[in-house]
């Protein structure tokens, strides 16, 4: 295949054509490596524009199925039908990251809840921890439905699967559920154990990232944020120094690009958030409410709201700790609010 074309190229070309020496399967192999290690969409999309042979190979299901998470790290303001099309092609190639990314975008941004959830479920079946956790958040909140659509048991079950795959927020959520008897019979000791595990994993992760730490633009921005105080919010905030339950500062975890997409989508004019709906107050999340008062508020100040305890815990260390001021409300009803504050404050 393509030999005739390559022969033609050789006659036109004066320079040595390195590309001609490479048989098709090796080109596919190189492009698979590129798609999985690309650090931005353009790294990979460039290939499509170079020539017909490379375009054909770049869109080969074998290559698309390997595409890594950063190949889909598109900007919300650049969202377009071809971008959607590209994600769909990768979904058809069985790419887990594409399933999750498109699932989140459809569910939250395009408000196509059924199709979004089903894409995330397909990613979850392929053991995508973030997809399992995102589905758990949807179940806990009854997102896309009414208050009565909350399914706490399903949320706990999904969290447990994500936690087994090493998802830290899921493990923390599971710990809180066990402690509070939320969707699962109460077991304070086991819950506490999971919370300790979540923190231990966080520490291990941060130690590993410290060992491979390279000064990059992102870190410079983070340091600036620190210098200007924790109240600065901006796109640079992708995670936060956590290990929050024990009051230690560890470097930020990198959020999934789709969280940045969601946030941009609703903060730019691309996405319209219906009146009375709010975004999760954790800057690195971007999940919007799908009905009024879906998310729970901070039980101390009532001024911020979170889609999950994971986001609450992350935002607490990053920002909210210094902002949170008790209001008169705090003595009032705490039914819909987080009940984990006292424990968290104690550990700090």
């Amino acid at each position: 295949m393509g030999t005739a074309q390559r022969k033609r190229l050789r006659t036109i070309s004066e320079k040595p054509d390195l590309f001609d020496q490479l048989p098709d399967d090796l080109v596919l192999h190189i492009l698979s490596k590129l798609s999985s290690s690309a650090s931005r969409p353009s790294d990979f999309i460039n290939i499509i524009i170079t020539c017909k042979r490379l375009k054909r190979f770049a869109l080969d299901p074998l290559v698309l199925s390997r595409a890594g998470v950063k190949t889909f790290a598109m900007k919300a303001e650049r969202w377009s039908d071809p971008a959607h099309q590209f994600l769909k092609q990768c979904v058809n190639a069985g790419n887990r990251e594409a399933l999750y990314t498109l699932g989140m975008i459809r569910f939250y941004c395009l408000q196509n809840r059924g199709s979004g959830a089903s894409l995330m479920a397909k990613a979850a079946i392929k053991s995508h921890a973030l997809a399992l956790y995102s589905l758990a958040v949807i179940q806990f909140n009854g997102s896309g439905g009414s208050k009565n659509d909350k399914n706490l048991r399903a949320g706990v079950a999904l969290c447990a699967r994500a936690a087994v795959l090493g998802h830290i927020d899921a493990l923390r959520e599971l710990g809180h559920c066990l402690q509070d008897g939320y969707g699962v019979p109460r077991n304070i000791v086991q819950g506490r154990r999971f919370l300790v595990q979540a923190n231990a994993k966080e520490l291990a992760l941060s130690l590993r990232s410290m060992l491979t730490w390279k000064p990059q633009q992102k870190h410079v921005e983070e340091q600036q944020n620190l210098r200007y105080g924790c109240t600065v919010r901006g796109p640079a905030i992708t995670g936060c120094p956590l290990l929050s339950d024990f009051g230690c500062n560890v470097p930020a975890r990198e959020a999934h690009p789709v969280n940045g997409f969601l946030k941009e989508w609703f903060e730019s004019r691309r996405g319209v958030l219906d009146h009375g709906l709010r975004l999760c107050s954790h800057g690195g999340c971007g999940r919007p409410e799908t009905r009024p008062h879906e998310f729970r508020r901070c039980s101390v100040c009532g001024a911020v709201n979170y889609c999950s305890r994971g986001c609450q815990a992350l935002d607490w260390k990053l920002r909210h700790k210094v902002e949170c001021v008790p209001t008169e409300q705090w003595q009032g009803n705490t039914g819909r609010r987080w009940r984990s504050w006292i424990w968290r404050d104690g550990g700090d």
């Binding site: 074309q5 190229l9 036109i12 070309s13 320079k15 040595p16 054509d17 390195l18 590309f19 001609d20 931005r40 969409p41 353009s42 990979f44 999309i45 460039n46 290939i47 499509i48 524009i49 170079t50 020539c51 017909k52 042979r53 490379l54 375009k55 598109m74 900007k75 303001e77 650049r78 969202w79 377009s80 071809p82 971008a83 590209f86």
Partner: peptide, 29 residues
Amino acid sequence: VRSFFGIDNDFTAEEEAALRREHAWAYEG
């Protein structure tokens, strides 16, 4: 990328412009 591999661009100018437009979503920043 073309010069790296010694690729001759076999797209017409129109085809290439169309491809670039189509994939503009990937070129933010």
